[in-house]
Each structure stands twice: as C-alpha cells, then as structure tokens.
Simulated scan of single mutants.
Amino acid sequence: MSTDFQTARIALGARMRELRTEAGLNGRGMAARLSWQPSKVSRLENGKQTPTARDLEAWAEAVGQPDAAAELQGRLRGLESRYRTWRRQLAVGHRPRQEAGISETQRTRVIRGFEASVVPGMFQTADYARHVLSRYADFRTTPRDTEAAVNARMRRQVALYEQGREFRMLVWEGALYVLICSREVLAAQLDRLISLLGLANVSLGIVPFSAPLSIAPGDGFAIYDDRLVISETWNLEMWLEEAEDVAFFSKVWTAMDEVAVYEHRAHRLIARARASLDLP
C-alpha cells in the first residue's frame, strides 16, 4: 500500500476518533450505537480499514454531527487521488503518467495552464521533451523510459488540432531562458512556440519579467474544464477535484492572465529569448 494512501487513511481515522471522543463515546459505546463489531471501530480509527461513504454518514449521525459527513466523505474521496509522490507516479517510468495525460485531455474541452520554469508539455518539441524527461528521471532516480514517454507526449499533442478543444496556456518569461537542454534544442523549442501563436484553438500568453504581479510565479498547474486541477511540486503531484481547489487555482490563473501579453507582444518576448541564444 502506498505511503500517500496510508498517511491519508490514518488522518481520516484520527478525525473520526476526534469526533467520537467529542461526543463522549468510547470505542465499545460507538460500536454499540452503530451495531458494529468493536474491532471495526478500532480498525477505522487506526487507519487499518478504509471506510465506505455510508460508514462515514452513519458515523457522523452517531456522534450527533450529521453535517460532518460531507467533510469525512471529502477526505475519503481524496485518499488515493489527491496527492501522488513522483516516486509513486514514476515507479515504472514516465510513460504511464503521459498516458494518463492523454486520457484526461480527451475528456476535456478547455485546458488552462501555467508554467514558470519549463515550456508546457503540450507545446514541447520531441527533443526538448526528451531532455526534460531524462533530466528528471535522473534527478528523481526513477526508471528511464524516455523514448516511450516522449512518444506518448507527442501523441497527446494531436489534441491541439482537434475542433472543439481550447488550450489557454500561460508561461512565465523566465521559462523561455531555462537551459535544461542545449541551446540548439531550446532555439527549436522557441521556434515551435512562435508557430503555435497562430493556431485557432491555442491561446499562449507570456507573463513578462516586468509585469506587476499580485502573487509571485509558483508551481506549474493545469485546470481541466472546471472539474480537475493537476499541480506539480518538487516531490509530488496533486490531483484536486474539490470545487474550492478548482476555484483557487482558477483565481491564480486569472491573476497571471491579467498581466500576460499575447499575440505580437508574446511573439516579441519569445523572439528576444531566441535571439539571446546567439544562434543562426
């Protein structure tokens, strides 16, 4: 069982125990009230058994706090899908994660995203993606399946040309200068970004160094319609489905969008980064 899952299950059990003790009930009393075996109460509270949604509703009723059911059930939904460490995500390499990205993209009409340090995966050239994926595999000491992962990332980009989809991506200007690859590969990547500026269903905004910001650029994230946020940190990836989380990241995206530049102004910033490489 994954550390992520078990840690969250222990936290859920601790919250259930807290509600029981607040109600003045011991374990046997709680079991009697629910017509359960005492061992079930113990397993749930110690994170050794996963409750069902119905268990949690009954628990909230038994402690006299029916409104707590929503909180407990929200924790249950997040047990396995909320936080995923990169070591767990990449246990067999990058390809499965890229395949998951294809699946989510196929389910989505509008993707809004922000990246502060690299070009968004949907816009990467194969060479640039190859460098990014191999560097992180080395850094995180996870299995290297770079070519399979790059191929999957390129397949995902087919969606850029499909009718009925919209990609609204924001990139911090600094990402245009990050040499996570050779200068030649970065130059080709910047040329690729310029070519995407003309696509009908792609909106690419650059957040300039000089932009007055209400918040500083942080971790990259993508919002899939209004149902899911995937946000990356150094050590884990968060899959967030709660409405309040989606609303929060939408607020972050809007704050960046308000100071981003588009079309010819974005072209100018990308071209300036390209010229700084001092290549043909």
Rank of each mutant, 00 (worst) to 15 (best):
L12W: 05
G13I: 02
A14C: 06
A14T: 12
R15N: 08
M16R: 05
L19H: 06
L19K: 04
R20I: 06
R20Y: 01
T21C: 07
T21G: 01
E22A: 13
E22M: 10
G24S: 00
L25P: 11
L25Q: 15
L25F: 08
L25C: 11
N26A: 08
G27I: 01
G27H: 11
R28I: 14
G29K: 01
M30Q: 10
M30V: 01
A31F: 06
A31C: 07
A32E: 15
A32F: 07
A32C: 05
A32V: 04
R33P: 00
R33D: 02
R33C: 08
L34C: 01
W36N: 03
P38Y: 03
P38N: 10
P38M: 09
K40V: 07
V41D: 01
S42M: 03
L44Y: 04
L44G: 02
T50F: 03
T50H: 02
T50Q: 14
P51M: 05
T52F: 01
A53H: 08
R54H: 09
L56E: 05
L56T: 04
E57N: 03
E57M: 09
A58D: 05
A60L: 12
A62K: 08
A62W: 05
V63G: 02
G64E: 06
Q65F: 03
P66C: 09
D67T: 14
A69I: 14
A70I: 14
A70Q: 15
L72N: 07
Q73S: 10
Q73W: 04
G74D: 11
G74L: 04
L76C: 06
L76N: 07
L76Y: 10
R77W: 00
G78H: 10
E80W: 12
R82W: 04
R84G: 00
T85Q: 00
T85D: 00
W86A: 08
W86N: 09
R87C: 04
L90T: 09
V92R: 14
G93Y: 13
P96I: 06
R97I: 00
E99K: 07
I102F: 04
Q106R: 14
Q106V: 14
R107D: 12
T108L: 04
T108A: 04
R109K: 15
V110P: 02
I111R: 07
R112P: 06
R112F: 03
R112L: 03
G113E: 09
F114S: 09
E115R: 12
E115L: 07
A116T: 15
A116R: 01
S117N: 14
V118F: 01
V119E: 07
V119A: 02
M122N: 09
F123G: 02
Q124C: 00
Q124E: 08
T125C: 13
T125V: 11
A126G: 14
D127A: 15
D127N: 13
Y128M: 10
A129D: 12
A129L: 11
H131W: 09
V132F: 10
